[in-house]
Simulated scan of single mutants.
Amino acid sequence: MYEDYDFNKDEKWNQYIQSADHSISKERLEYLKQIWYKENVNKKYQIDNTKISNVKEESKLPYYTYSTENIFKMSFMLLLFMQGVAQVFGYLFNFLALQRQIRNTQILQKKQYVKLMITNEFFHNLVFLFLFHFFERMHNILIYSPILMHSWVGISEFLFLHHKSIYERMQRYIDKTKQNKELIMIQKQKVEIMLFPILLFAKLFFDIGNWIIVILYLIFLKLKYHTNKRSKVAWIQIDYLIESNLPSFFVSAYKVIRQIAVHFFVD
């Protein structure tokens, strides 16, 4: 029975709903609980709208903050052709998202705060944006594609959590994004990794970019490798892709370079 189900003991539910922080109202929370129960516990359960309408709303302030964050995400995506303006929105939404996620975690010591921050995907996005801030010739959709992917994942979660009417209109796309969130985020890491040889190639053969950004980006990838589990998975998938699909002479050269990277870069 829905009324007897203990959501507090459902780890998947708790992990997912934690991302909503305090921005979600009790009314919306009740609706999401019923969706979750129907999808994961009892497929035959019928959502009871009377339960939803009888729940009182909470403070709207956290919602407005979360909503502003996602407006900035949409602005970043829509105004990407205006690189300078889009980058400002990128800074804003990643900063708000970083604060939201840190605020949602109990921190007892400063060391915990620092550790939480440097392992956070939104902090990595801020570093990524900063790296390309001063190099105008590096501004294009390819460079910012990892941030675009993360933005869409975030907007999808926001619409699911807070906007029933929009969610119902876009349910097919939002549900697909939610179901493939982990795959999309790993793809994000893979794109970030593959940007390094592109940056190196652009500097060596077309004199586009700067050696400083190449070195700093390598350090950035090292930070991601040590602090982001998805980044390690992405490296494994790239290794497999290269070894399975490219000629043997290329694979041999790649293995040598990869071994050097293990000693001088990864470790």
Rank of each mutant, 00 (worst) to 15 (best):
D4Q: 14
L223A: 05
L159M: 14
I198F: 12
H150N: 15
K176D: 08
A20H: 13
D175N: 14
T119A: 03
E30N: 09
H139M: 02
H150L: 10
Y225K: 12
V251W: 13
H150F: 14
K232I: 15
K33S: 04
Y225T: 09
K73L: 09
K232R: 14
K229N: 11
S248I: 14
L223G: 02
H124F: 03
N42A: 04
T65A: 08
I147K: 02
V127W: 05
S25Y: 11
I47E: 02
P146I: 04
N70S: 10
P247S: 04
Q259M: 11
E57N: 15
H163G: 07
T227R: 05
Q46C: 06
I208Y: 06
S67N: 06
E157F: 13
I166Q: 07
K178I: 06
G154N: 01
L116R: 14
Q187K: 05
P62E: 07
I52P: 14
I213W: 05
N125E: 08
S248Q: 10
S165H: 15
G84P: 01
R137K: 10
I17Q: 03
Y16N: 03
F93K: 01
M82N: 12
Q112R: 10
R28K: 13
E3M: 10
F130K: 11
I238Y: 05
L223E: 03
D239L: 00
K178D: 08
A97W: 01
D4M: 15
L29W: 10
F196A: 02
Y16T: 07
V256M: 11
I236T: 09
Q259T: 07
L96T: 08
L199C: 06
L78G: 12
F206R: 10
L183E: 05
L98V: 04
I71V: 15
M77E: 10
R100D: 02
D10Q: 08
Y31L: 10
Y63M: 14
F220Y: 13
T227E: 02
K51H: 11
D207H: 12
F250Q: 14
K38C: 06
N245G: 03
Y173P: 01
Q46A: 09
Y64N: 02
F249M: 05
M138G: 02
K73I: 03
D175T: 11
V114F: 15
I186D: 08
I143E: 01
M117N: 01
I184A: 00
S231C: 13
S25F: 09
I184P: 00
L32T: 03
I147S: 09
I186R: 08
N228M: 05
Q101S: 06
H139E: 03
Q15S: 11
E243S: 06
E192W: 04
I52A: 12
L92K: 02
Y240R: 12
L246W: 06
T105K: 13
V127N: 11
S244G: 00
H133M: 06
S145W: 06
A97Q: 04
L223N: 06
V88A: 08
I141C: 13
D21Q: 12
M194R: 10
I212A: 13
A20D: 01
Y225W: 08
L129M: 01
K73F: 07
F72E: 05
L92G: 00
F89L: 02
A261T: 04
M149K: 04
F93C: 01
I166T: 15
E69G: 08
H162E: 13
K110P: 08
F196Q: 08
F201V: 07
H162G: 05
S75Y: 15
Q87F: 00
E192R: 13
G154A: 04
K203Q: 09
K229P: 08
